[in-house]
Nucleic acid binder design. Structure first.
Lengths: 240, 240
DNA sequence: CGATTATTTGATTTCGGTCAAAGTAAGTGG
DNA sequence: CCACTTACTTTGACCGAAATCAAATAATCG
């Protein structure tokens, strides 16, 4: 558990939680945390579990504590597009609208901390800083969505894959830092999911990964584990 | 000017402004409006004028009062992608970050109302409802961005064009309503810009429009004016 | 009216999709 | 522990939607 003089009065549930530091809960004082914690549940969901369903009513919001959640949209004939990936300590939910317009699904095994929509909306009124944090999170999501719009609309298959690997490296390489040469991580998505994220087919994703491996830009172990020796070589292939 | 018993004490500048009703300024009381209005400037910009430049410092935010603003991102080799279109009374700006990561440009002649970034951020602290409005606006932008991600990643050229026409109709047909059969409007974008919005080339955009015209789904006058007799036929081609 | 820019149309190419099959990994139950 | 199923990934052959290249036509503007 993180050493912290501010741990006094903090709910046990929250004491070691990243969302209290970098996530939205950081806006709350011990009393408010305590109040929210009363209606809070921590739970695990395994890969593939649907967390929020399209057109379903959403009565609870969550923080991602570990793992990766994918947000997808589906056309009437079944074509799918992943429109966002959420990592700890991201917030999952669409405030001020009870109907969801997308599906949230556990891409890996995940741990979540969830609370009633109403409880959060009530607390937002008494603690404006909570709304501020939420705004900052949503602004980040918007920036990311727009970055991917450029990739989807204007990048080649090869550039899409390179950009994707870089994004994953930035988000889940535990050793990540701004000035490092290499990276390694487990892909949180299957080939089919990567395809749905990048607007490609499984076959194209597979071929492009094989190509990067052939050019010694990446190494792949056990299908999911990726090692990048020189991030620069990947960046050079990302188009931007 | 709009008849309104609440017009008392409202700055002249704001009296007839849509942003005061549906935009972010609706969160402000007359006193606050007055304070903000002191550092507010109304101005016009003609088609093509760059309003916010990529990597430039942003010292002012704006409301769109009329016309259409396009938000674009450009790759190092010049490929471009439009990542958002803003209509009145949308807010333009990225709070909590002085560096812009995109370019905002007048797609048509526009009227704007701009104010210093600092003034808005100061006022957000004393009036949480302002931040609330901003959050709602940014949530809408995020929803829209994600809808376009689906179009960019998974729709065919024909579906992209149909979706685009529908979106424009919804936003600028003055007679627009939920239960109407037809629509007509002036396209706010050139063929090249539509291409940059949909991740296509000019030629493909042109061919798809010609095709829709051939199938009598739309009529086009003077290159820019579009008439849709039966919205349903367009919706049927939009993919979702 | 000529000059310039935007749009359309046509011919050809290409990147990524589709279809098909083989190779791999991960369980499952005997 | 190993046969067997099932799901995921890779590879190959071929195809097609949209890109590219090239020109003609239409609109706009000084």
């Amino acid at each position: 558990m993180r050493e912290d003089i501010h741990t006094k009065g903090i709910p046990v549930l929250c004491a070691s939680c990243e969302a209290r530091h970098r996530g939205i809960c950081g806006a709350l004082n011990p009393d408010q945390l305590l109040t929210l914690a009363k209606s809070t549940k921590r739970h695990k969901a395994e890969t593939g579990k649907e967390l929020v369903s399209d057109a379903g009513n959403v009565e609870r919001f969550s923080n991602v504590l570990s793992g990766v959640v994918k947000l997808t949209k589906t056309l009437s004939d079944g074509r799918q597009q992943i429109v966002g990936l959420q990592f700890a300590p991201d917030f999952i939910g669409r405030p001020f609208q009870s109907e969801s317009t997308l599906t949230a699904e556990a891409a890996t095994d995940v741990e979540l901390c969830s609370f009633p929509r109403k409880a959060l909306e009530r607390m937002m009124k008494e603690q404006p800083d909570l709304e501020h944090r939420l705004l900052e999170q949503k602004l980040r999501e918007l920036d990311q969505a727009r970055d991917w719009m450029v990739a989807l609309g204007r990048k080649t298959a090869a550039e899409k894959i390179a950009s994707f690997l870089l994004m994953i490296a930035r988000n889940i390489d535990p050793t990540a830092g701004p000035e490092q040469r290499g990276a390694c991580f487990d892909l949180p998505l299957s080939r089919a999911e990567i395809a749905d994220f990048l607007g490609l087919t499984v076959e194209t994703v597979s071929r492009q990964l094989t190509r990067l491996r052939g050019e010694k830009v990446i190494r792949i172990e056990n299908n999911r584990h990726v090692i990048v020796d020189d991030i620069g070589r990947l960046t050079a292939r990302s188009g931007d």
